[in-house]
Simulated scan of single mutants.
Amino acid sequence: MPQPWFDDLSWRGAAAARADLAACRALLRHGSKSFHAASLLLPERVRMPASALYAFCRVADDAVDLTTDRAAGLARTRDRLDRAYAGAPLPHPVDRAFARTVARHSIPRALPEALIEGLAWDAQGRRYETLSDLLGYAARVAGSVGAMMSLLMDARDADAMARACDLGAAMQLTNIARDVGEDAAAGRLYLPLAWLREAGLDPEAWLRAPVASAPLRGVVRRLLDEAGRLYDRGLCGLAALPPDCRPAIAAAGAIYAEIGRHIAAAGYDSVATRAVVTARTKLRLAAGSLTAVAARQRPALADPPLPELRYLVEVATVSRAPMIPARASGVPWWELRARLLWSLEILARRRSDVRGAVT
């Protein structure tokens, strides 16, 4: 039986759309391994558009990060966004799948525009004086993705959206803590400059000779503490999601939080080493996510969104209802368990693809 995402297409159109999505999945299998692993736990109605969304984000990031002419890369990305929202995407699988996703799920254009604004800040080499400034960046490059994922799951109320943005920002802070040495080698510095000065470090001097001194490790630990606070807030939003979506989001949060635990185990030295989460550990965390969700649901959190994330919530919650009617969310746990076991089997077969660093 055709899935709802293809219901309005002819047989030929549905086949072409499936081919586009297969191309998106292939891109993510190698370029966004953590998402690819966690997404196997999503129901197909969410996994398909989520793959299109993440593939577009991956292509946009590469257009800025992997080119010598970042301004041109940004211009091309903005043009691709214009075309997608005009319903005339470029003849590329990712663009076609993304255009269909934003139309079918009523994703406000301001959300992918926020992501592109964050990429523009990367291109400018922008640095961040305070944690609030850094959270403004995290809101754009990761909170926006969390908000879009919430829309794909039809969790559109303000509290659910706020928690999705919290979780996205937590993951971004974890990425920054993990990549301190790698970023420094490329002349990039994302740690709050005020924190470095408070620790007795001159940002420019440290960047010229980056070492994992005790003060620097303290700053990394401080950043991971902030990420932990955001994980706690974000995962309180699981209750607002359809039951069959919760294990995947719990798994994604667990995999990223594990990066922080690896950094801590290395004495918060993310200059000389880069934390990795092995395929075996990902499998264990994915399995544990279902047990945790089934056994104990975190209480819902109705706290307002953080100031740096508020505008994303406001934009997302005024969007109109999706074109696809919401399905009943009462999925039996034994069906979720069967899906998890199937996903773990697929992951095990692909261990060679996901071995190495979490990206």
Rank of each mutant, 00 (worst) to 15 (best):
P108L: 09
M1R: 07
D202T: 07
P4A: 12
A162Y: 07
Q3T: 14
A279E: 12
G267M: 01
V102N: 02
L241F: 14
G181V: 04
G146W: 03
P242Y: 02
S10V: 11
C57N: 14
A26M: 06
D122V: 14
T359H: 04
L216M: 14
P192D: 07
L223M: 13
R350K: 11
V102R: 01
A265H: 06
M1W: 05
R80E: 15
W195G: 05
E44P: 02
P93G: 03
G146H: 07
R78G: 12
A272K: 05
A240V: 03
Y256D: 12
I255H: 08
L53V: 14
R100D: 15
P305E: 05
L238H: 11
A138T: 14
W206Q: 05
V220G: 05
L74N: 05
H105D: 12
F56V: 11
A160V: 14
I107F: 00
F6T: 14
W121S: 13
D232L: 14
D8N: 10
P210W: 01
A72T: 15
R349F: 08
M1K: 06
L66G: 09
D303W: 07
C236N: 11
A328I: 12
R208E: 09
L340M: 13
V219C: 15
E314G: 08
L285Q: 10
L53I: 09
P332A: 15
A248L: 06
A240D: 09
V315D: 13
L152C: 11
Y54V: 05
A199G: 11
R100I: 02
A15Q: 14
P247G: 09
R246Y: 12
L53P: 06
R126V: 13
A26P: 01
A110K: 00
R100E: 15
A254Y: 00
L290Q: 08
D7I: 11
A142E: 02
L285K: 04
D69W: 04
A138R: 02
P304S: 12
A99P: 08
A326T: 15
V219H: 01
L235Q: 15
R274P: 02
A84P: 03
L201R: 05
D225H: 03
D20L: 03
D62I: 10
P108C: 08
R339L: 10
A287Y: 04
V276A: 15
A205M: 04
I116C: 11
A254M: 10
Y137M: 09
D225I: 14
L336A: 06
M148S: 10
A257Y: 01
L28Y: 04
A275W: 00
R296D: 14
V220E: 00
L224Y: 13
A84R: 00
S10D: 01
R163H: 09
L285H: 00
A287H: 01
E204I: 09
V354D: 12
E345G: 09
V102G: 02
